[in-house]
Amino acid sequence: MPVRMVESPAPSTSSGANPGQTSLQPCSLLSVGQTFSGTQNVSSPQKEEAWRVNVRIQGCDLNHGYVCGTMEALNVPMADTPVVTFWEGEIVDTKNYTFFTNKWKATPEVDIDHWTKFSSFSPLLSQVEVDGGKSLDLSNYQYLFMRWKEQYFVNVGADCGLTIAGFYYVCFSCVDGSINGYYYDPNSSPFQKLELKTTNEGRSGFSFSSYELQ
């Protein structure tokens, strides 16, 4: 059974010569091989639609703010098979990455609009507006904030009818392993919500087919 972290108070502003340089604490629920299952709401004004989604963590390096994995989307209308993508993620640790994306067509205003969708971000907002959160101490906060960027399709071609031009703003709970996210792509429906829960693969979870990552 995964070890649960003790709930901690809201992060404080770092003090001393190197603000924001504290390291994040390991989270047993964000580890290589961990799987998650849930849905992504892709509804448009014309149609209500949600895809079933499975995620597996393939790599995690907290010292460098790095995480990667595979995402499998099922019941995608324009695809004959589940669509699997490989993604790489930036963990907001105020050392390697801040809350400001500075790429992928995301402005600070877009960042704030998406991060504020998460209630756990509320205690951080005022400081993030000042410096992107550089001076925050997130080392013992019970939530991890990340950006996931899909890099390529694993089992289908780029002409499958789907786009991976955007990226996900993600909030991960170290208490129960739940994941909430919002997809951002100026050319896609706004605020597509990703909701995942940790699974025990082979028991109450799901099974991935075998895919060779490039």
Rank of each mutant, 00 (worst) to 15 (best):
S126V: 03
D61R: 10
N102I: 07
V6F: 10
S31R: 13
G202C: 08
Y141L: 04
N102E: 13
N140C: 11
K197W: 07
Q21F: 13
S135W: 11
T39Q: 10
Y97T: 03
Y152K: 02
C174Q: 05
G33P: 07
G65P: 05
L138T: 02
N75D: 15
N187K: 11
L136C: 05
H64R: 12
P123G: 01
N200I: 12
C68M: 07
G181L: 00
P2V: 01
V84E: 12
P11I: 02
N140P: 01
S15W: 10
F208C: 09
K197I: 08
T13S: 12
V92P: 01
V42H: 02
F36E: 10
C174S: 05
Y143L: 01
M71P: 05
Y169T: 01
C160P: 09
T101D: 06
E7P: 05
F167Q: 01
Q21C: 13
S8P: 00
W87K: 04
S44Q: 06
E7V: 12
C160W: 00
S210R: 14
I164V: 14
S188G: 00
M71I: 13
E49T: 03
T81K: 09
T35G: 08
F208V: 14
G202V: 06
Y141W: 01
M5T: 06
F145A: 00
A106V: 14
C171K: 00
A73P: 03
G33H: 14
C171F: 02
T163C: 12
T39I: 14
S120W: 03
T70K: 09
G161M: 03
K149M: 07
M71L: 13
K134I: 07
L196Q: 08
L138E: 01
N96Y: 09
N180H: 08
F167L: 09
V175P: 00
S209C: 12
C160D: 02
E201M: 12
T85Q: 06
A50K: 13
T107C: 11
V67T: 07
P82Y: 08
V32Y: 15
Y97I: 05
C174W: 00
N187R: 08
G133H: 04
E150A: 15
E109R: 14
S37F: 09
I91V: 14
Y143R: 03
F86M: 07
Y66I: 13
D159L: 03
P26R: 09
Y152D: 04
T107Q: 11
G20E: 12
P190N: 04
W51I: 07
R147E: 07
D111C: 12
S122G: 02
I91H: 10
D61W: 14
T163H: 06
L213F: 15
V130I: 14
D159Q: 10
T198G: 07
Q46T: 09
F100N: 11
G59Y: 10
G181F: 02
P26W: 12
V175A: 04
F206A: 14
L144P: 00
Y141H: 00
F145T: 03
E201W: 10
V67Y: 12
K117R: 11
T101V: 10
A50Q: 09
